[in-house]
Design a protein around this nucleic acid. Sequence first.
DNA 1: TAGATTGTTAATCGATTAACAATC
DNA 2: TAGATTGTTAATCGATTAACAATC
Lengths: 217, 217
Amino acid sequence: MKSEKISEAVVRRLPVYLRYLNALNKREVATVSSQDLGHRLNLNPAQIRKDLAYFGEFGRKGIGYDVTYLIEKIRHILKIDQQINVVLVGAGNLGQALSNYNAYLKDNMKIVAVFDALPEKAGTSINTLVVQPMDQLESTVKKKNIRIGIITVPDFEAQQVADKLIESGIEAILNFAPIILKTPENIRVHTTDFTTDLLSLAYYLEDGREETEDDSE
Amino acid sequence: MKSEKISEAVVRRLPVYLRYLNALNKREVATVSSQDLGHRLNLNPAQIRKDLAYFGEFGRKGIGYDVTYLIEKIRHILKIDQQINVVLVGAGNLGQALSNYNAYLKDNMKIVAVFDALPEKAGTSINTLVVQPMDQLESTVKKKNIRIGIITVPDFEAQQVADKLIESGIEAILNFAPIILKTPENIRVHTTDFTTDLLSLAYYLEDGREETEDDSE
DNA sequence: TAGATTGTTAATCGATTAACAATC
DNA sequence: TAGATTGTTAATCGATTAACAATC
């Protein structure tokens, strides 16, 4: 166990480990080696061992990692050994799609409220949740102890919504609008942008141009 | 202009540059410096210059970059100076949400067909597109010259759908299912996973534990 | 004991940033 | 000419991978 700063790359691999460990657990596999994990997840075994070692000594030499124990540890590291409540702002198709993931997120994260800026959306239902108007955001965030906000509104509304979320006391934001949010530095923001993903994929298309095809990977 | 291999990090920044350049263009800003761009996009100006320099000399010393010229160049690099046709498989909420982005993607990428594995979905409509059954995939991909596939099916179907897409002649895949697809190495795959994003955000929550808060960033 | 596998240090690799001559 | 800004090389930083002693 060392007290180095943990890079974001490491943190983003933890949920990937967790997912596969959960699958192993379901199959009642008791133990897994960094070798196995690496092979399955296309990662270097040394990297996996190093990632985990940032947080403690979870394995046993000669044996590997106990699956249920490691699950427990990663859940603790990710702070999802307690339920984390999430609010979603933007009750459009994307918001609706994401709220379907609640089942997947049984790892103790849960979307517990949905808001929309359009007053006429208020009162409609998304899955089991009733869409609320924005003026109830702060009170609901506080009442339900909501700590993470998801933004699925059009880009021109996103900054305003982010501001309101932060004002309401949210600690982290997952932003689906294709803009760079201005936020205080104690608020963690991840932006995930479908169009960026898709446009960058086009780069890798083969085509009739004189590109050198030394794309070694 | 050098002929080094371009890293994925560089390629993923190009659409980000493009988006902001388009915004500048709309505002009829003629010229932009790496300084300006960096400030707006939270990137180091040297990095922006270096990224662009991989592909050519697009700027003018003492002046900066001509906005419309740079847009043209980046569009060419990303290969979206021609229309790229995209197929979406999985007509659920997420598929529907993504098909709404067609308007955004006016940069010459377009979702031109939607498929679903469930026979009863066939014939229903998503935006202006009629959902087709899977057995029409290959013929449609060929007929419409579709080159990229988006997978928005449940995780247990994703590998199968990927196989079919590849068989049909697709060159790249954007995968929204939380699994690691096995694909031939000439097929480019980007996986984007909502649950990974959300779980990794939880790590950054402040809480009552003895975490050292040297999270310097 | 022999074989397997961890945790960790050292080596490598790659990406970001700084610096600056060239030049508009 | 003076000021601004590029393109590019060199320096720095950080992340990944290899190697191996410790040990189950």
